[in-house]
Design a protein around this nucleic acid. Sequence first.
DNA 1: CAAGACTCCTGACGGC
DNA 2: TGCCGTCAGGAGTCTT
Length: 277
Amino acid sequence: MPELPEVETTVRLLRPDVVGATIEKVSVFWERTVGRPSVTAFRRGLAGRTITAVSRRAKYLVFHLDDGRLMSGHLRMTGRFTVGEERKPPHARVAMQFDDGRWFVFSDVRKFGRLGLGDTLDDLLPPLGPEPLTDALDGDWLATALRRRKRLLKPLLLDQAFVAGLGNIYVDESLHRAGLHPLRSAHTVTRSQAHDLCAIIKDVLGSAIVAEGSSFDTFYRTPEGNPGAFQDEFFVYGRDGKPCRGCGTTIKKLLVGQRGTHVCPKCQPVPRKRRTR
DNA sequence: CAAGACTCCTGACGGC
DNA sequence: TGCCGTCAGGAGTCTT
């Protein structure tokens, strides 16, 4: 599922195709895909606008328009942006035609993705924690922030208001590499473990971007239609029943905060007085 | 403040 | 073979 690396890859590959393009008209095939303003306001607000830049904040794509407004896009599980000749490829939810005839399309099998239009990032996006790949996230900050919270480590890391951009895959991978169990209470993580975890998160996300994201199922594809390659570097995600690449112990899958969670029982010691399964 | 339940959706998959 | 129930999963909302 698209997390920070997949969104960053999408932004990078989309950028040359959409920056400078002018939106002539907008077709909305599934109204709920349009979150923020009404569908009418969304269509009117985009018509005639030129995209001047594309950036990313957390798992959101942000399209900057020539009138200073912003269009946000969240891929959620199965969302995908493409640019091509087709107005309505399979599962197309919103299509924007550029003045050169090309169609900029948002497709989304499961219909969880959302597009929005607004004046500023603040009114368009919910409260978000620091960006992991910038100096906004550093070991000292993470150590202090973890100590203050009395929540399970994994659900906290998945909380976008705590740290932005992490999802199920990269949290599992990062915790495994850091040797931390997802059921640990955040405040029990030591300062040095927090520093390690911080560096690992940055490294995992950075490597995943280099690999153009992860495609373990049929869902995530780059705008060009290619799968990512980072799934080949997974240590635990989706590897339950298989041997840990580090120690050979069988990877277990458990449920943490309603999320499928993968751990190596040996590399990630179970926190005291907590049961797994 | 923490955490679980529920909701939105559809394709894939297991069971029979 | 085919039908059907179940499940995954990000994030918002509601309840405990």
